[in-house]
Write a protein that binds this DNA or RNA. Sequence first.
DNA 1: CGGTACGTTGAGTCATATCAACCATAGTGG
DNA 2: CCACTATGGTTGATATGACTCAACGTACCG
Lengths: 233, 233
Amino acid sequence: MSDILDHLSCDSCISKIHPLFRHLNEEECNHISLNKITESYKRGSLIYQEGNRMKGFFCVQKGIIKIFKTGFDGKEQIIRFAKPGDIIGYRSVISNEPACTSTEVIEDCIVCHIPPQILMTLIKTNGDFALELMKLSCKELGEANSFITDIAQKTVRERLAEILLYLDNEFGMDQNGVLNIFLTREELSNIVGTATESIIRLLSEFKNEKLIELNGRKIKILDRPGLKLIANI
Amino acid sequence: MSDILDHLSCDSCISKIHPLFRHLNEEECNHISLNKITESYKRGSLIYQEGNRMKGFFCVQKGIIKIFKTGFDGKEQIIRFAKPGDIIGYRSVISNEPACTSTEVIEDCIVCHIPPQILMTLIKTNGDFALELMKLSCKELGEANSFITDIAQKTVRERLAEILLYLDNEFGMDQNGVLNIFLTREELSNIVGTATESIIRLLSEFKNEKLIELNGRKIKILDRPGLKLIANI
DNA sequence: CGGTACGTTGAGTCATATCAACCATAGTGG
DNA sequence: CCACTATGGTTGATATGACTCAACGTACCG
């Protein structure tokens, strides 16, 4: 599932990737450099799974990862995505519980795997780092709260419009205006929280309304204001 | 809306209320004691509101508070409740953003209002405190993720059963087996994420199925295993 | 006493899920 | 190289859970 890559120093990477690491001194940075493992995963690989005990946390360098929970009947609910610069898996390390989500690679990726003690030690000894990590989890918490409200109150149509804008905002588009993330219809339905068929029908409605253009998994957003109107943003 | 109460030392209270404060030394504890304000709020009072800039965080000593977001059409979505020992409002202080939720008193309460700088300083200077607070926000994050999955995948009936068990678990019952929290039908619907009429119909179904007993806002749970079965837990 | 907030019930509607059939594509193994 | 299979996408028909609207009951309160 994963390949271990040649060792790369954190000096050149970590500080750029995330504000979290801005506050590390040279010693702390070297410590991470020496103890991290850089791994490469192909699309479809699972990095960790719900219920497993975490053996560290991950720093995403390249690629896209989906983070999801598996519901009662086996249907997955995508909670969020991680892209370069994001940190995943820290939640379970800190609360010292089994992972409450699974992560699967959407687009081939490279991640740095950092052992758990390093995280705990940094929190305890580097106040600025602790504060930055707190900010991160508080930000995620705020987003989760909004997501709860949306799922509870908005229609599927509204949510799909919102998710398309979210994906646009999060992953951007290429020079042709095509979203930089390719999801199956089923994955889209697992974000929105609906049936695959509903997503297919709504996407095709949006296409007819000239809001988007479809080409397989490639989605091109034509009318952002129109989508915002539908999404009630 | 709120009354300021006589000054009470934290020595006797804080350490008992939350594991968070176990790691404070005498000096830190005194500092909080001297700078906190103890306030009393009646049912219906708003402690803080979405969009406001937070002037500190709150430590709940007595009573019950609902934490909610207001959706597009003004309908509220209850995210969670706070009860004695819980901390509220710390999220916005840390991320230094306006509050993303509002809080309204469900049952008359007493809270200690602690200024924001104290929180920031403690995180930076007391590693154990920082870790404990991280654990708290990570726990909330895990709960939010589960909630997202439930709302997205379960039926209203399943969610109502689950919420009743959650309330039972969170607030317990009195000697007669009646839940220690009294919510209007509308509030129940704002947790479950449905219409008030649906909650009324389902509650009465549960009553007919001998799962619960109703007496106004008093709910007595008769058949926990039955509810678990319905909730898919 | 009238007003306001909450609770209840019924009827009708609509959004969404479900079920079923079918097509396209790519990978697999004999 | 072809049948075989798996996966993903699409469409139509049908069912139904849940919402909306409307009317009315109840209780408390100034």
